[in-house]
Design a protein around this nucleic acid. Structure first.
Lengths: 219, 219
DNA sequence: ACAAATCGGTTGTTTTTACAACGAAAAGGA
DNA sequence: TCCTTTTCGTTGTAAAAACAACCGATTTGT
C-alpha cells in the first residue's frame, strides 16, 4: 500500500492532503489493494458496489456489450482516477457496466460510508476529502455531458470532429494521442469501425487532419 | 421564500432536514429566489456559475443548439431537482448549455462554497446536506450514464425502445407519460422527428406499444 | 370566433451508415 | 524466425436515417 502513497497524493481525491495523513486515512477508510491481469474483469454488470475504487496502476475501460455483441465504451480510467463513486449511494441500483483491465492494473478500494461520516481520528481531512470527492464526481459529470455532446452529433464525421477537437482542447495542442485503437474509438463513439475508418481517411485526404496510429494532428 | 419550504423539504438535497432547520440554513447559504416566464433563459451557454440552483416551481430543459440549429435536449428538470452543481467547482469551466423555462418557473440559488465549508450555526445539518448533495450528484451521474445507454444504440427504433422501457421501469408500470412532445423527444434522443414519428407508428402497428400524445403503454 | 401557430403523421428522395468481406501491414508469441 | 493474430484501410451492397415538403387536427392568442 505504501508504494502507492505518492500516486494517491496526486489524485484529485486526496488533493491537498499530506502523505502522512493519507496513510492514516487509508486504514481509517478500510483500504484494500487488488490486482488484475490485462483483460480481467474488475467489476461485472449487475454487481452492487459498496466501495469507491481508485486506480493506482494500469488502465481500465468501462464498457457495455449488448445482446447482439455491440460494444460501447463509456469511458477510460487512467492512473489516479476514481471509479464507481456514483453507485455507492444506498438508493442506487447495481453497477450497469463491465470494468475491464486494459493492461495489468492495481486498484485500491475505500469504504465510502466511513468517508462520508466523519470519524474521530482525522476529521480535518475528512472534510477536505469529502469536498474533493464532490469536485471529482462533478468532473466526471462534466465529462459525461461532453461525451453526450459527441454522441448527439448525427453523422460519424461530426462525432469525430467533436471528439477530436475536444481532445485537442484538453491537451492544449493540435497534436495529441488518444487512448483507443480504431475499434475502440468506434466503440466509444458508437459507430461502425469501417465506416469511421473510411471517414477518417476522407478527412485526411481533405486536409482536415493527419494521423498515424493513435496519434492525431488537427489542421 | 417561506412558501417553498415544504417543497424544499421533499427535495433530495434537504432530505432528512426539518423545516425549521431548512429555513435557518437558507439564510446561512445566502439563498436567493428568482422567477422566469415560460420560454425565458435561466442560464445561457458560457455563463460561469457560482451557485447551485434548485427548481421549486415549473419545469426546465437543459439543451444545446449547434451552429446548424440542431437542438439536443440533455435533460429535463422538474420541481425539487438540483441544477448546475457540476459547474460550481473552481476548476470547472463555463456552463456549456442553455437552461430554458418550459413553463413559468421559480428557482432558488444557494451558495455552494458556504455549503461545502461548514459554518458555526447549523453544522450538524451541513454534514447531512453535503452528503445529500453527493448522493444527488451521484444520481445525476447515473442518469447521464443511462442516457448514454440510449444514445449509444445505433437505430432510432433501438433508441426508442431503450428510452421507453427505462421510463416504464422507472414508473414501475407499462403505462406512463413522458415530459416531451414528439419534437422534444427527437431532440432528446438526437434523431430526426419525422423518422422517429414514422418508427413509432410502425412499432404501434407491430403491436409493440400504444400511445396517445405523450402517454405511452408498452405491450 | 377566427386567424395563426403548433403538433403529429405521411411520403419520397438523397445521404449516410451498417454490415460483410477481403487484403496488406504490423504486432505478438512460440 | 515463422506463424498466428490483430489492426487498419478499402470496397460494394443493403438498410436506415436525414431532409424536405405537405396535410389535417389541435391548440393558442386576440
Amino acid at each position: 500500500m505504501k508504494n502507492y502513497i505518492s500516486i494517491l497524493k496526486r489524485t484529485s481525491l486526496f488533493s491537498g492532503v499530506a502523505e502522512d495523513d493519507i496513510l492514516s486515512m487509508l486504514s481509517c477508510l478500510g483500504a484494500r489493494l487488488s490486482s488484475y491481469k490485462k483483460g480481467e474483469y474488475v467489476f461485472c454488470q449487475g454487481e452492487h458496489l459498496r466501495d469507491i475504487t481508485v486506480l493506482v496502476e494500469g488502465s481500465l475501460h468501462i464498457q457495455n456489450d449488448d445482446y447482439w455483441g455491440n460494444r460501447s465504451i463509456l469511458s477510460t480510467i487512467s492512473v489516479g482516477e476514481m471509479l464507481g463513486e456514483a453507485y455507492v449511494a444506498p438508493e442506487s441500483g447495481a453497477f450497469p457496466n463491465d470494468v475491464i483491465a486494459m493492461e495489468d492494473s492495481v486498484v485500491i478500494f475505500l469504504d465510502v460510508h466511513r468517508m462520508l461520516t466523519t470519524c474521530s481520528s482525522a476529521c480535518r481531512f475528512h472534510a477536505m476529502v469529502v469536498q474533493n470527492m464532490f469536485f471529482t464526481i462533478s468532473e466526471k459529470n462534466r465529462r459525461l455531458v461532453q461525451k453526450l455532446g459527441h454522441m448527439s452529433k448525427r453523422t460519424t464525421r461530426e462525432k469525430l470532429i467533436s471528439y477530436l477537437s475536444e481532445e485537442a482542447k484538453r491537451c492544449k495542442s493540435q497534436s495529441f494521442s488518444i487512448p483507443f485503437n480504431r475499434q475502440q474509438l468506434a466503440d466509444f463513439l458508437s459507430v461502425d469501425r469501417s465506416a469511421m475508418s473510411n471517414e477518417l481517411c476522407k478527412m485526411r485526404d481533405e486536409g482536415l487532419l493527419e494521423f498515424e496510429k493513435n496519434q492525431f494532428k488537427l489542421l
